[in-house]
Design a protein around this nucleic acid. Structure first.
Lengths: 195, 195
DNA sequence: GAACGTAACACTAACCGTTAGGGTTTTGAA
DNA sequence: TTCAAAACCCTAACGGTTAGTGTTACGTTC
């Protein structure tokens, strides 16, 4: 029952990686909806059941590293300097995330996502999960001491900022514009101080 | 090519209604995921293809009158008294909608929705559609003259308020708490006046 | 009121994502 | 060497959804 270090782990990671890269290549070449799971599995030279043991769904093949997103957001809350105000820390992180996914290199992927309603739906519920995680992190911060509702509300607003800015004509300006609104909403929740 | 008034329309509406009520009954009796489309169609005495000509998906059977929701929100914007401020009008409407769907009579339906991830996902993307519609209504109001980003942001926040309040322990109090935040966010977008 | 176009519906057969069941190989540990 | 478990494979199915192809009932038109 020790850690299964070594070859086995490496092989597993390699299989997973091969599936993901094959899938992404096929999806970008011919469109997400036009490529079936059986085809991805065949091209990656694995069984369909193997594919589904690595990825929970077809959509998950596209959003392979969404845990990054979640971790970076909670990190922005829990890992900020002592007494550093919350909202600027979150704005900085959201700005970086938006810049990252509006870069030219990411454009084909996001075009593909926008073209598939299944992928859009999946991303929406991913965002909701992320909002919940972020809300938990905010609610757990003793410096803030917010109500459950306020924590969840601010978390939703921050995720909304990400989603709206990504679609805006000028994403960076949109982040600033939305965060001015979030800042105001936040200050209402802490009447006595500036957190 | 005139309006097909008469018996045909009535029969169609009756078929649609029979499908919807049969489906809802079966779903409530035995759970959404435990009842298949083929079974709903058989019980309603129609072909599966007929069912799908009336409803775009299995989930749509549950959210039969979601256009109400959309209309009531845009109505709250476009139909408010001249010079009436936007946010209180929206708060009033959201409060009514929340009260409506947290009523005891609606409890079994919402329990069913909460128990099915497919239904939850569907509702999420419905909400996003509603937010877009609301954003359009806000952006179109000449009294407000907001940027596209600000309109979409406020619309999202309002829909978030509905969704969060519905899940809160005290829904009405949550509406008030969240709308205080929205009000503050809104005032940031109109620096020179109170709209 | 007979004939015609079409909307509503039915039936079959499939497609696609996903999973269960059950078997084989590879790996790490004893 | 032996053994248990992990990783993988194959087959077959299930449930939502759609295409293809009739058939019936309605409204219109002459």
């Amino acid at each position: 029952m020790t850690v299964p270090s070594g070859r086995r782990e490496r092989k597993k990671a390699a299989t997973r990686q091969k599936i993901a890269s094959t899938a992404l290549r096929l999806f970008l070449e011919r469109g997400y909806d036009a490529v079936g799971i059986r085809e991805v599995a065949a091209e990656a030279d694995v069984a369909v059941t193997t594919l589904f043991s690595h990825f929970a769904s077809k959509e998950a093949l596209v959003f392979e590293q969404d845990e990054d997103f979640e971790q970076r957001l909670t990190q922005a809350v829990t890992g900020r300097a002592p007494h550093e105000p919350l909202i600027p820390a979150l704005r900085r992180e959201i700005r970086a995330l938006v810049r990252h996914c509006t870069a030219d290199s990411a454009a084909p992927i996001w075009r593909m996502i926008d073209e598939s309603s299944a992928l859009r739906k999946y991303e929406e519920s991913m965002r909701l999960r992320h909002a919940e995680t972020l809300a938990t992190a905010i609610a757990a911060d003793p410096e803030l001491s917010q109500t459950a509702t306020a924590s969840r509300t601010i978390a939703r607003f921050v995720i909304d900022a990400y989603s709206l800015a990504r679609e805006a004509a000028d994403p960076e300006a949109a982040v600033d514009e939305i965060f001015r609104m979030i800042e105001a909403a936040w200050e209402v929740t802490c009447p006595s101080r500036r957190a």
